[in-house]
Computed example of a mutant assay.
Amino acid sequence: METAEKIRQWIGSVFNHAALLELTDGNPAALLVGYLPKRQAVHMPALPREELTEFFRRLILADTHQQNRLCVMLIMLCFARNAEIRGGRWQEIDFDKKTWTIPAERILSRWQTGRLNYCKSYRPSHGIARFCSPAHRHRRPYQRNHGRQNH
């Protein structure tokens, strides 16, 4: 059904454009809006931390194209979106500085805005803090194990 809905949307776009150009009187695909049942989203559980090592080991040994392996690794290691990685270009990566700059046009704007708004909500309203997540009593970043509870 997912494919049928995509085709309906595509045909609808063609007819909407044709209507703007006065080549047609209507959009027959509009009659199908809501007719095709939406597939219920299935959310997969997160991979438990204890299983990551085995997952990466199997991924490295998997019989797949090197590009696919690289994409999965980058998604997991950089927390980048699929489109950000798939559209990646070698000139975006500075191996000397160890940085990858993803152009704004490849970053989904609502995600980017959401990330920035989230960061702004934590930015101090007075003065400029040196770190985004400073320790409460000290002028240094949180330590690596800060906030971990030993059980």
Rank of each mutant, 00 (worst) to 15 (best):
M1R: 10
M1E: 13
M1N: 10
M1L: 05
E2Q: 12
E2A: 09
E2P: 00
E2N: 12
A4R: 12
E5H: 13
I7H: 12
R8G: 07
Q9R: 14
Q9A: 05
Q9G: 03
I11A: 11
G12I: 02
S13F: 11
S13I: 03
S13R: 14
V14T: 11
V14E: 04
F15A: 08
H17A: 07
H17Y: 15
A18F: 06
A19K: 15
A19Q: 15
L21S: 10
E22M: 07
L23R: 15
L23P: 02
T24L: 00
T24Y: 04
D25G: 10
D25I: 01
G26D: 13
N27D: 14
N27H: 13
N27T: 10
N27P: 11
P28D: 11
P28I: 06
P28L: 09
A30K: 15
L31I: 07
V33I: 10
L36Y: 15
L36D: 09
P37V: 03
K38I: 03
Q40W: 06
A41M: 08
A41I: 03
V42D: 14
V42Y: 14
V42T: 14
A46V: 09
A46N: 09
R49D: 07
F56P: 02
R57P: 03
R58N: 14
L59C: 08
L59I: 06
L59R: 12
I60A: 15
D63A: 14
H65P: 10
Q67L: 14
Q67A: 12
N68K: 06
L70D: 13
L70Q: 12
V72D: 01
L74G: 02
L77V: 02
C78M: 09
F79E: 02
N82S: 13
N82V: 07
A83P: 07
A83H: 10
R86Q: 03
R86W: 05
G87S: 06
G87H: 08
G87F: 05
G88T: 01
G88N: 00
W90M: 01
Q91R: 15
Q91E: 13
Q91H: 12
E92G: 06
E92V: 01
F95P: 00
D96E: 09
K97T: 03
K98I: 00
T99A: 05
T99G: 04
W100C: 06
I102P: 11
P103I: 01
A104C: 07
E105G: 10
E105L: 11
R106K: 11
I107M: 13
I107C: 12
I107R: 05
I107W: 05
L108G: 03
L108C: 08
L108R: 13
S109C: 08
S109G: 10
S109K: 15
R110C: 04
Q112A: 13
T113D: 09
G114E: 10
G114M: 13
R115D: 08
R115E: 08
R115C: 11
L116M: 14
K120A: 04
R123D: 01
P124Y: 02
S125P: 02
H126N: 11
A129W: 02
A129H: 07
R130C: 02
R130N: 04
F131W: 15
S133F: 12
P134I: 00
P134A: 01
H136Q: 10
R137H: 05
H138P: 00
R139F: 09
R140H: 09
P141K: 05
Y142D: 00
Q143T: 05
R144S: 09
H146K: 05
G147C: 06
R148G: 00
Q149R: 09
Q149I: 03
Q149D: 04
N150Y: 05
